[in-house]
Design a protein around this nucleic acid. Structure first.
Length: 554
RNA sequence: GCGCCCGUAGCUCAGGUGGAUAGAGCGUUGGCCUCCGAAGCCAAAGGCCAGAGGUUCGAAUCCUCUCGGGCGCACCA
């Protein structure tokens, strides 16, 4: 059980003994100032109305009836009725043993245990190489998956390939045109085509392979086959760069193969019709999005099947979510770009209509990355064919720095990324500050080993020499980690981990500067080594959650 | 016009779902390597949390309005 859970239990016991009503929840915060203790709660204030007593009186009652806990040194009532908890230094220091013993497991929890989560992210169109915004989505999505898993959820990550529909056709026609040009024929790109140079390269490649040029095949068949070939190549490139980035997906699904060819759209249309949620108008089939009340929030009905007979992207998506995603998961999370946020209400309405409980379908909007080079905006547009590739980002900035930078922002906050600055200041990036703490600790360990000093098993270390304020503060910070991970997982906010790591590093570096770890006093040396090991271990765990490496030397 | 997101230090961004005196990095200024890694440490300067109301013991956080940004509002995806 986590520390705050123990404290909450203490509060409940005390309230029961005092004959006071129990709170629904008991929120703990870490006060900014040390005089306010290590943890504080405002339960007394929130209980004041129900108990018909002044908050301070309730707080006094809690203090008077609080059961003795090894964790707690003393309690104080302060201000309008805060209950401040001061932890026992001896208990805190002793808990280092558990951190060390837990190792990589420290910080894992059961906050999301039993949940099956389907997490889709990136899912860029298979019409070109990945650009920078995908790097952000990949960093966030992957970290979310790691966080959820650390809290006991069974997560399936997914990359959904939109290899069908108008976009696919435009892409296939563009490739066809490039191939024709490659063969020396006059051909122009279609109106909505993809002018990027990569299609020229692909055309050369296709020809170089000696593949069937399909010159005699009827246009539809030729476009279909050429398009499939090109899409497969593009997707393979995307997969490769993502792997280099440290992101691997459990499932690569295909709109064409897994949804359309499987006949799912027709099935879902029938199911919606059976529920009376569709109607025909102007030759098209519509979804009664607006009839589902405010919960869905959609402001107009949506077309499922066009008058031309083709199903819409929306219908395909609904079918896929309903028959595939929800079949294997009770929680479906999608990461979208901001240009798709208007799409969310109709999806939510459809999921609700098909019987999926509210909240089981979630969409996180990952905001855009504004790319700058020396302060000048770099326009990103696949259509125009000018963009900065994810590959270039990794070359220039590096995988760890890129991921960490993306994870120091909330996913829904726009981000400015100056390539030139990021490259130039690479050594001053916060990620190195955190990694350096880890590397430094490894260095201390090596140094100690050279002098024949090695740490005994956690249970046998004498930790009592740890007594300075800096040491206590560090230990207390480490004790917050499990709680932090749980909260970050619950809120789907991996950036909290990144900030927390910076704080820990920000405590460790000064500590290292002012307190010598390896020195004459053997007992003190061992105790401090144990502290360092604990810090290093937790930092490593945290970086792992973000998909960032924890180097032993830099 | 309607809807969603956003406005916090010069710049880039945090502020665990209402808490006590507003935080970090970068940048600026001034110090620190005879000692476990200077990718580090110490110190200073920098704020009307866009603005105005409201809710209550208490608001950067919740509600309304105004101003100023971004993005959506297709039988596109």
């Amino acid at each position: 059980m986590d520390l705050t859970e123990r404290l909450t239990e203490g509060v409940r016991t005390a309230l029961a003994k005092a004959g006071l009503p129990e709170p629904e929840t008991c929120a703990w915060e870490v006060p900014r100032q040390a005089e306010h203790g290590d943890y504080a709660t405002n339960v007394a204030m929130t209980l004041a109305r129900a108990a018909r007593r002044p908050p301070r009186q309730i707080a006094d009652q809690i203090v008077a009836n609080f059961p003795p806990l090894a964790e707690v040194e003393r309690l104080e009532v302060a201000g309008p009725g805060f209950l401040n908890v001061f932890l026992s230094p001896a208990w805190c220091v002793g808990s280092l043993r558990e951190i060390l013993a837990a190792g990589a497991a420290y910080g894992r929890g059961t906050g999301e245990a039993g949940r099956r989560v389907r997490l889709e992210f990136v899912s860029a169109n298979p019409t070109g190489p990945l650009v920078i915004v995908s790097a952000r989505a990949a960093a966030v999505g992957d970290a979310l998956a790691r966080l959820q898993r650390a809290q006991g959820a069974r997560v399936t990550t997914e990359y959904y390939v939109n290899d069908a529909g108008n976009q696919f056709e435009a892409f296939a026609r563009s490739f066809d045109a490039r191939l024709a040009q490659e063969l020396g024929e006059p051909a122009t790109l279609p109106e909505n085509g993809y002018p990027g140079e990569y299609l020229i390269d692909l055309a050369k490649e296709y020809r170089g392979e000696g593949s069937d040029l399909l010159l005699d095949a009827p246009a539809p068949e030729r476009l279909e086959r050429l398009g499939r070939w090109a899409v497969a190549r593009v997707v393979e490139g995307q997969r490769r760069i993502l792997r280099d980035y440290g992101v691997e997906f459990d499932v690569w699904s295909s709109e064409q193969r897994d949804v359309r060819a499987a006949g799912l759209p027709e099935r879902v249309l029938a199911e919606l019709a059976a529920r009376g949620l569709t109607y025909e108008q102007d030759g098209a089939l519509w979804f009664r999005s607006t009839q589902l009340g405010e919960a869905s929030g959609d402001d107009r009905d949506r077309v499922l099947r066009r008058s031309s007979g083709e199903v819409t992207y929306f219908a395909v998506d609904v079918a896929y979510h309903h028959y595939v995603k929800f079949q294997a998961a009770d929680r479906v999370i999608n990461l979208f770009g901001p240009d798709h946020h208007g799409y969310v209400p109709r999806m939510r309405a459809a999921m609700q209509a098909l019987g999926h409980p509210p909240g089981s379908f979630e969409v996180l909007i990952v905001q855009l990355v504004t790319l700058l080079r020396e302060g000048q905006p770099v326009r990103m547009s696949k259509r125009r064919g000018e963009f900065v590739l994810m590959e270039e980002l990794l070359e220039e900035v590096g995988r760890d720095a890129a991921r960490f930078t993306f994870l120091t922002r909330r996913h829904d906050s726009p981000l400015e990324f100056d390539l030139a600055v990021a490259t130039r200041q690479t050594a001053e990036n916060p990620v190195y500050y955190v990694q350096y703490a880890h590397a430094r600790i490894c260095s201390i360990r090596r140094q100690a080993a050279e002098q024949g000093i090695t740490l005994p098993p956690p249970g046998e270390v004498d930790l009592t020499p740890l007594a300075t304020p800096e040491e206590l503060a560090l230990v207390k910070r480490l004790l917050q980690y499990p709680e932090l991970v749980r909260a970050a997982a619950r809120a789907l906010e991996p950036h909290r981990v990144a900030y927390w790591l910076q704080e820990v590093a920000g405590m460790f570096h000064p500590y290292y500067k002012t307190h010598r770890v390896i020195q004459d006093d053997r007992r003190l040396t061992l105790a401090r080594l144990a502290l360092c090991e604990a810090v290093g271990s937790v930092v490593k765990n945290g970086l792992e959650l973000l998909g960032v490496s924890a180097p032993e030397a830099m």
